[in-house]
């Protein structure tokens, strides 16, 4: 087994442990666990970064060097990395174990799915000509940072429906975090769609061809544009915003997974 697979295996385990620490926190309410959680998040992010870097280095050793952002497996691993990154970047606002705990669970799911699903090819594959573009790298980077920010928004949307004193953050705090994460995610998604369009222009001579993945990313974008207008212009609050953030994230999930498996198009990594 290649070295990077080992590191990423440890990282997966760490996400599991982190999630369990959250569970223990909820049961025992020891404030010192919160400090441990944050140290754990930093360490995991570091190791995760190392894992990605090793995979990158390994691809050069195999003489097919490229940034590890080019197939489904790499995108899953990268998605989990982005979730951790966003949590660390929003640390000041995310002082609520309920949010970091669910984020760890989602990262764990992504890592676990990447390493055990038979539908995922874990080998480093050479880049076919269409994928050899720097625009592609910026495209994937920006899209996944956006998707990770929407994970936070989704978690807030779900938490809105639960009341659990001391575990679920107060309503106002959830709303603020939800809004801020969309404020990070929306420009990133916009940048992701634009860089994707520029890439398509140079690769195929058409910046927009209504391919299913493109169309679904537009739908996602529209949902979050509606989210922003509903909040900023119409002053919506509470349940309606929570529902919008859940619809938005469902759309993200469909753009990312659904389109690959259910609809076919230019973006299916399989071809």
């Amino acid at each position: 087994m290649a070295f990077h697979h080992k590191i990423l295996g440890i990282v997966t385990l760490l996400y599991l442990i982190l999630f369990l620490i959250h569970v223990i926190y909820v049961a025992a309410r020891k404030e010192r666990l919160v400090a441990l959680i944050w140290i754990g998040l930093y360490v995991t992010l570091g190791l995760h970064t190392l894992g990605l870097a090793m995979r990158w280095a390994e691809s050069y050793r195999l003489d097919i060097g490229h940034v590890p952002l080019s197939n489904f497996y790499e995108s899953l691993i990268f998605y989990a990395w982005c979730v951790n990154l966003i949590v660390v970047l929003m640390k000041k606002r995310l002082a609520y174990p309920a949010i970091t705990g669910l984020a760890c669970l989602i990262a764990l799911f992504l890592m676990g799915y990447a390493s055990i699903s038979p539908a995922v090819d874990r080998n480093i594959q050479p880049l076919v000509p269409a994928l050899q573009s720097n625009w592609l790298h910026i495209h994937v980077l920006t899209c996944f940072i956006a998707y990770a920010a929407f994970v936070v928004s989704f978690v807030c949307g779900v938490l809105h429906f639960f009341e659990w004193k001391g575990v679920v953050p107060p309503e106002k705090a959830i709303e603020e975090i939800n809004y801020k994460s969309v404020v990070v995610g929306f420009p990133m998604l916009t940048a992701g769609i634009f860089t994707g369009a520029v890439w398509a222009h140079y690769a195929w001579g058409a910046y927009w061809s209504w391919d299913p993945k493109e169309t679904w990313s537009l739908i996602t974008w529209i949902v979050y544009a509606l989210f922003l207008h509903a909040r900023i212009v119409k002053g919506w609050k509470g349940t309606r915003m929570a529902i919008l953030s859940i619809i938005g994230f469902s759309s993200v999930i469909f753009t990312y997974f659904g389109v690959n498996f259910i609809l076919s198009g230019l973006h299916s990594y399989a071809t």
């Binding site: 299913p212 169309t215 739908i219 529209i222 544009a225 509606l226 207008h229 119409k234």
Partner: peptide, 24 residues
């Protein structure tokens, strides 16, 4: 009005969804 915007954007989104479900 922004109400009209929300209606239009929702319709555009739904139309786009249809375009990905029905073969084009």
């Amino acid at each position: 009005s922004v109400t009209f915007t929300i209606m239009l954007l929702s319709c555009i989104a739904i139309g786009s969804v249809l375009g990905t479900i029905v073969k084009q």
